[in-house]
Simulated scan of single mutants.
Amino acid sequence: MEALRIHQGLVCPLNRTNIDTDQIIPKQFLKRIERSGFGQFLFYNWRFDDEGNPSPDFPLNAPKYKGASILVAGENFGCGSSREHAPWAIQDFGFKVIIAPSYADIFKNNCVKNGILAIQATEEQVQTIIKKADTEGYSLTVNLEEQMVSDSEGFQFTFDITPYPKEMLLNGWDEIGVTLTYEDKIKQYELAR
């Protein structure tokens, strides 16, 4: 995985609450066995009409959000089933950071395991970002080391993250990567057996 220390990116607002994993990646697209290729189906039922044409009123289809890497959404993001495909689709589409007032626990853990920083912000902070993101080219800087989100206009806030997921994201480790940090001790143990 790629280490995430400081990320500056275009913001895409998705002002909806209770976005569940079936809305993030609908069940009919879960047939792939690899982690890649899911981004094209992200929010499929909202991004496309019944004929497969892009819905012009959905934010991810707006030209001003093309290339966005920070997704801002309402509370209870990632609720529903615990499918790991949801963060795979978000990451494959190009998002590295999500900001929301609250998350489903399993979804938030799956984000960390896949290199996505899921920041919990207040409802007021989220609504401020959503309003500012209406302006074309609105971007944020996310500093994981300092646990700070800021923009060029003076808006900023700090966020909490526990040490273990922070270390994983800062170093670009998944759980196998964490295990490999103990490789010398594992070899010593095996030699002693």
Results as ranks from 00 to 15, higher is better:
Phe95Lys: 03
Ala62Leu: 07
Ile129Tyr: 11
Phe159Ile: 08
Glu75Val: 09
Arg32Glu: 09
Phe95Val: 03
Glu75Gln: 14
Gly74Cys: 01
Glu145Tyr: 00
Asn143Phe: 08
Ile116Thr: 08
Cys111Gln: 04
Leu180Gln: 15
Gln147His: 04
Ile99Gly: 08
Thr141Arg: 10
Thr128Arg: 00
Glu146Gln: 15
Ser69Ile: 04
Pro87Leu: 10
Phe157Asp: 00
Val11Asp: 03
Met1Gly: 05
Glu2Asp: 11
Tyr103Phe: 15
Glu75Pro: 12
Gln125Trp: 04
Phe157Arg: 00
Lys108His: 10
Ile129Lys: 06
Ser55Phe: 00
Pro59Ala: 05
Phe155Val: 03
Pro56Gln: 09
Val149Arg: 07
Ala192Gly: 15
Asp160Met: 06
Ala62Thr: 02
Ala104Thr: 05
Trp88Leu: 11
Phe159Leu: 09
Glu124Met: 12
Ile176Gln: 11
Leu14Tyr: 11
Pro13Cys: 07
Leu169Ser: 02
Gln127Cys: 00
Asn143Glu: 04
Ile186Glu: 08
Asp49Asn: 15
Tyr65Asp: 00
Phe77Leu: 15
Ile33Asn: 09
Leu169Lys: 02
Pro87Lys: 07
Ser102Phe: 01
Glu51Lys: 14
Leu191Glu: 14
Val126Gln: 12
Asn15Leu: 07
Asn61Pro: 05
Lys108Trp: 08
Val72Asp: 07
Gln120Met: 14
Phe41Pro: 02
Lys166Pro: 07
Leu140Tyr: 12
Thr181Gln: 15
Asp160Cys: 05
Gly80Met: 10
Leu14Gly: 07
Tyr164Ser: 10
Gly39Phe: 13
Asp105Glu: 14
Phe38Ser: 11
Glu145Asp: 10
Gln127Glu: 02
Ser55His: 07
Gln8Phe: 01
Ile24Asp: 15
Ile70Arg: 09
Gln127Ile: 00
Tyr182Cys: 06
Cys12Ala: 15
Leu4Thr: 05
Gly39Asn: 13
Lys131Tyr: 04
Gln147Glu: 09
Tyr103Ile: 05
Asp20Tyr: 06
Lys27Pro: 02
Trp173Thr: 03
Arg5Trp: 01
Tyr44Leu: 03
Thr135Ala: 13
Arg35Ile: 10
Leu10Ser: 08
Arg5Phe: 00
Ala68Cys: 05
Ser81Thr: 05
Gln125Tyr: 06
Lys131Gly: 00
Gln8Leu: 01
Thr122Val: 05
Lys166Arg: 14
Val149Trp: 10
Val11Glu: 02
Met168Val: 02
Phe107Thr: 03
Ser55Cys: 15
Asp22His: 11
Ser36Pro: 01
Val149Pro: 04
Gly137Trp: 11
Ile33Arg: 13
Ala133Met: 01
Ala89Ser: 14
Arg16Cys: 03
Ala3Asn: 06
Ile106Arg: 05
Gly80Ser: 12
Ile90Asp: 09
